[in-house]
Amino acid sequence: MVENDATRFALKTELLQRVEALGLQQALFPSDGEQIDEIVQQLESINPIPHPLHPDHLPSLLGNWQLVYASKGTVVTRQVASIPDFGATITIKRVWQKLVAGGAGKISASNSALLDLPLLGEWQLRADGVWTWGASEEMAKVSFDSFSIQATKPFGMESWSFPELKIPVLEFLRNEAEWTTSYLDQEIRVGRGATGNLFVFRRE
């Protein structure tokens, strides 16, 4: 147990150093992060909380988490990267997730991103949804019921802000995706999507 704790500490230190060396922009856009992925796999092999959705472990899962690395980018950054000569001029200032208990077998999830857009200023995007699960205490089904957008500093004006525009997703249009929490401790969380995308979060 002591050996695992020491190994986890060393691996997490190396992981965070490599992520920091990339810089937030590169860490959240699709890139070759093979070395980081290998470190994460080693961490997953000594996961201290293998059943994060068990009621006893939910307090360790819930709260505010900053996304620090995405192996294949995020929904937002993949779209940005696909725009020729435009992605390089968009600055990702922050991406974070808030998880709140939503009743038995449910977690309310809010995914947010703060972007600095050329000429348009600072904008915040948010997707609100829910995690549900059954017997599995590692994999959840995720669906989103609304999306919102807000200009927090339009045109770079510090004293301006626009009201939030919220767009609900009709129930028959909601898609479910599988989400596995493959590593969890008090500081670091790793999530994997069904397509193999790897996400590393750090507790705020």
Rank of each mutant, 00 (worst) to 15 (best):
L99Q: 05
T132H: 04
I90S: 01
L117Y: 03
P84K: 05
I90Y: 04
L114M: 10
S108N: 15
V100T: 13
G87L: 02
I92G: 00
D128W: 07
I90V: 13
L117S: 00
E122P: 03
G103F: 01
I83C: 04
V80G: 01
W131R: 01
D85S: 15
S112M: 10
W131K: 02
W123G: 04
S110Y: 10
T91E: 13
I83G: 02
A113P: 03
F86I: 09
V95E: 07
W131M: 09
E122K: 09
S112A: 12
P84D: 04
G121R: 04
S108D: 15
K93I: 08
K98P: 04
A113G: 08
L114H: 06
L120E: 07
A88I: 14
S110C: 13
S112Q: 12
W123F: 09
S112G: 08
W131H: 08
S108V: 14
V80D: 05
E122G: 02
A88S: 15
A101H: 09
V100R: 11
D128Q: 11
D116H: 09
I92K: 00
P118H: 04
A101C: 05
A81F: 06
D128Y: 07
S82W: 05
I107W: 00
V100L: 07
V95Q: 11
D85M: 15
V80M: 08
G121P: 06
A81V: 09
K93H: 11
L117E: 00
N111T: 03
V95A: 09
L119S: 15
T91K: 14
S112T: 11
V130G: 00
P84C: 05
V95R: 02
I83N: 02
W96P: 02
I92E: 00
G102V: 02
S110Q: 14
G105S: 01
Q124F: 06
Q97H: 08
Q124S: 10
A104Y: 14
L125C: 10
D116R: 10
I107F: 01
T132F: 03
S110I: 12
V80L: 14
I92Q: 00
